[in-house]
């Protein structure tokens, strides 16, 4: 199958990963333009319904980014996100969503290059899959 350009919805936390994305941008780092960033105040804000909503309206993958464990601006938000997203990932895999479509990662405000790398890796991963037609009739 020809590779395609996946659309990725990324939920980035305001304090670390969104700032990391900002740094990647202001440092003129190259990363795939497949990503659409939605800023959330904390990765702990991300409800599993966000993930399914994104997939159901046509995103090929969802990336949830938060601060590294221990670095959360709200102290424990990313730990809660980790529990929630680990369950979401495992459970949706069991229902038939390919695990690559739901990605969770940590990226700090000073890791512009890591942000670019992460986006690159996730995009490459998703290029291996077929476009998301799960919710088509």
């Amino acid at each position: 199958m020809d590779s395609f350009e996946p659309k990725i919805v990324a939920f980035c936390c305001n304090w670390c990963s969104y700032a990391g994305a900002d740094l990647a941008g202001t440092s003129r780092m190259q990363y795939p333009p497949n990503i659409r960033i939605i800023r959330v105040m904390c990765s702990g804000r991300v409800n599993p319904s966000f993930v399914l909503k994104a997939l159901s309206v046509g995103a090929d993958g969802v990336l949830v980014l938060g601060c590294h464990p221990g670095d959360c601006h709200y102290l424990t938000g990313n730990y809660r996100a980790r529990r929630r997203m680990a369950i979401a990932k495992k459970f949706l895999e069991y229902m038939g969503v390919e695990p690559e479509r739901i990605q969770v990662g940590w990226c700090s405000a000073s890791e512009g290059s890591r942000f670019a790398e992460l986006v690159g890796e996730v995009t490459d991963n998703l290029r291996q899959l077929s476009p998301n037609r799960m919710f088509n009739d």
Binding site: P69, R80, R83, R84, M85, A86, K89, K90, G105, W106
Partner: peptide, 16 residues
């Protein structure tokens, strides 16, 4: 409750 608690190290193999 499960969602109101955490361990410093857990489920990291599912995270990038």
């Amino acid at each position: 409750p499960l969602m109101a608690a955490y361990q410093p190290e857990e489920a990291e193999d599912l995270i990038r």
